[in-house]
Design a protein around this nucleic acid. Structure first.
Length: 320
DNA sequence: CGATGTCAAGGAATC
DNA sequence: GATTCCTTGACATCG
């Protein structure tokens, strides 16, 4: 790499999360239960096949399942805790392949990982979980753009105090975690202006999620302004990342018969990305560079379909 | 084989 | 303090 940074000079990236739909039989992690001794090494074999598929389709961004190392932080199952070390060779090899393919990877720990919880036990286990995620990405030899995405957490009846707890706990995280942790606006509790305030306190980079913003935007910031606010929080030389999805407008399962149609729940992801909306969004941010993680139910198929809309629109801004 | 129950974990609303 | 929903898929067991 020519510069100390790793920002790509190619087009910005379009990616998807975890599950592959475009080819039958590809699994994203070893999800067997503990009785059957699942292992990270098995997940790595699965990932290898997924990256082969990504190479064939030219998809250059992918969110790895946070269940990749089964039970690795489970408090009652110490026999699972050494999986990352046990898989060091396999992970190094996989990481080499990921770098050759120039794929940006990320992870997104589950809803149970809550750094700002008033319960010390919960906060400690969040730190342990982040640490394990960082250790996994480090074992791949992934660069600094391989991020771990989280939310602020709960409100607990006192928003300022809950935000302060996030900041205080972020400040004392291990450096390996701080190098990778990024904060996303959520659909219920913490909109962009709140996470921006948290960034101002502790410097954590922000991931703009457009769907969450559209359903949780009390400050009435427009999409492009809110996005710009988040993009500006990233360190020089790292390409920011944005989450993009289209809101489902009609419930997936409808009552049988001629009865009234049931509306979708607010904030539910649609199967696909609205290409016209996406192109319009990008056109409002002509000078900005950022990678886009799509969160559509049709996963990789939605990436492939969105490419068609981008091409048809004849965009100047390059994203693929 | 198809149907059904289960899964480590938190938060919030409800009673 | 206990219960249920949130949301998701796929494993695992049952009939």
């Amino acid at each position: 790499m020519a510069s100390p940074t790793e920002a790509s000079t190619g087009p910005d990236r379009l990616g998807f999360a975890v599950k592959v739909l475009g080819r039958p039989g590809l699994k994203s992690n070893d999800s067997r239960r503990w009785q059957n001794s699942p292992h990270l090494k098995t997940s790595v074999v699965y990932l290898d096949a997924i990256f082969e598929y990504l190479a064939e389709t030219g998809i250059r961004m992918y969110r790895i399942s946070s269940e990749i190392a089964p039970y690795v932080t489970h408090p009652d199952m110490p026999q699972f805790h050494g999986q990352i070390e046990e898989s060091a060779d396999e992970l190094a090899e996989l990481g080499e392949r990921i770098r050759q393919l120039d794929i940006r990877v990320s992870m997104h720990p589950s809803q149970y990982i809550v750094l700002n919880s008033p319960q010390e036990r919960v906060a400690r286990s969040a730190v342990a979980d982040f640490t394990h995620h960082a250790r996994f990405l480090d074992s791949l030899g992934a660069g600094p753009e391989a991020k771990i995405v989280t939310h602020v957490g709960g409100v607990y009846g006192d928003r300022p105090a809950a935000m302060r707890r996030f900041v205080e706990r972020y400040r004392v995280l291990p450096e390996t975690v701080k190098a990778r942790l990024v904060l996303e606006n959520d659909e219920i509790s913490y909109p962009v202006d709140d996470i921006a305030a948290i960034h101002d306190e502790c410097g954590i980079p922000l991931v703009f999620d457009i769907l969450h913003h559209r359903v949780n935007n009390p400050a009435a910031l427009d999409d492009a302004a809110a996005c710009r606010r988040c993009l500006a929080t990233w360190p020089e030389g790292q390409t920011p990342k944005v989450h993009y999805s289209t809101q489902r407008t009609e419930a997936r399962t409808q009552p049988k018969g001629d009865g009234p149609r049931r509306p979708a729940k607010s904030g539910e992801h649609d199967d696909w990305i609205d290409g016209g909306d996406f192109v319009a969004f990008l056109r409002r941010l002509p000078a900005a560079r950022f990678d886009v993680m799509l969160e559509a139910k049709q996963k990789d198929l939605a990436v492939l379909r969105l490419r068609e809309a981008i091409e048809a629109a004849g965009m100047d801004r390059r994203i693929w």
